[in-house]
Nucleic acid binder design. Structure first.
Lengths: 161, 161
DNA sequence: TTAATGAGTTCCAAAAAAGAACCTACAAAA
DNA sequence: TTTTGTAGGTTCTTTTTTGGAACTCATTAA
């Protein structure tokens, strides 16, 4: 399968990855959440090549994750800011960071602390069921074909013993 | 910055992406969570080339996300299964799927429903604060340098108005 | 007049992915 | 006994994507 066909799959993971599933996009978005808005700042902080940065920012704008807004005329200068759709990616980044804190940290511990403004504590994200509020792990969930699945092959293969 | 240097950054997101941040790895893991365990099944379901699949499975085993276990001798056949570290990636996948369900679904709605076995409802994941249990959005969190940050540059740039 | 700045674009070399064919050890079928 | 099939790869060639550096353009600052 070619990468461009990914967004046509009846799979929300595949569709999401068609937007953020490359090597650089989520790092760019991390910086967006830290307040970075300008081309040159992204470039300097990430060590990304200008060509790739141009391409990724353009794609994020096309997908409605970022929008451009002028912060100065003559010469015109634009900055990149998160849309509502982009802000919704925060849970994705937090989930990735949380896994890295737990499984990839060196002996000095997590590099960044997340403080919940409302309660004032250093927090880590917990995923709970929207219906009953209980914490979720992989074993707690069963999948079923939904409306967008249509008449396709069964969801699961037969490798499971 | 070269991709191989990514895991040395003092950033848990960068370190996590050094494991799962390429085009195919999270799709492979999605299938693992659906019960797929064999080389040939991954290949057929994903339409991935054998070369890339071999490489990704090897890396996931090296990182302790999957492990190989023989399900048959003579001829020896091995299958790939999630470790505890791998199972912990479930929240990441669920967060990505949830974003896709909300922002990338076509008019037929979500392709896959997630049923919480304990309460029996179709759920979507909700991220809450580990300390106070309140739901989290991007605006609710402030970052601070943690122990693993050491004496580096300030976390945030100055683009924020 | 020269230099600097921000946000790119252009060009070339290197690396990674796509696609197809080939390999190996065994088993079952004709 | 030769052929066919299978699981899990490896090898080869072509295409696509990155990395890295240099160049552009409009405007302001020294």
């Amino acid at each position: 399968m070619r990468w461009e066909e990914l967004d046509q799959q009846p799979c929300s993971l595949a569709r999401t990855l068609s937007v953020v599933g490359d090597r650089w996009t989520l790092l760019i978005l991390r910086d967006c959440f830290l307040g970075v808005r300008r081309f040159e700042t992204f470039e300097r902080r990430l060590g990304i090549t200008r060509h790739v940065l141009t391409d990724r920012l353009k794609k994020l704008v096309e997908h409605g994750v970022l929008y451009k807004s002028a912060y100065q005329e003559r010469p015109r200068r634009e900055e990149y800011r998160l849309t509502g759709k982009g802000l919704d990616l925060y849970t994705v980044i937090l989930a990735l960071v949380n896994w890295g804190d737990k499984h990839m940290a060196d002996d000095r511990g997590a590099p960044v602390k997340h403080i919940h403004k409302a309660c004032g504590h250093a927090m880590h994200p917990q995923m709970v069921c929207s219906e009953c509020g209980e914490p979720i792990t992989a074993r707690d969930i069963r999948v079923e074909a939904g409306d967008g699945w249509q008449d396709r092959a069964p969801l699961v293969g037969s490798d499971r013993s």
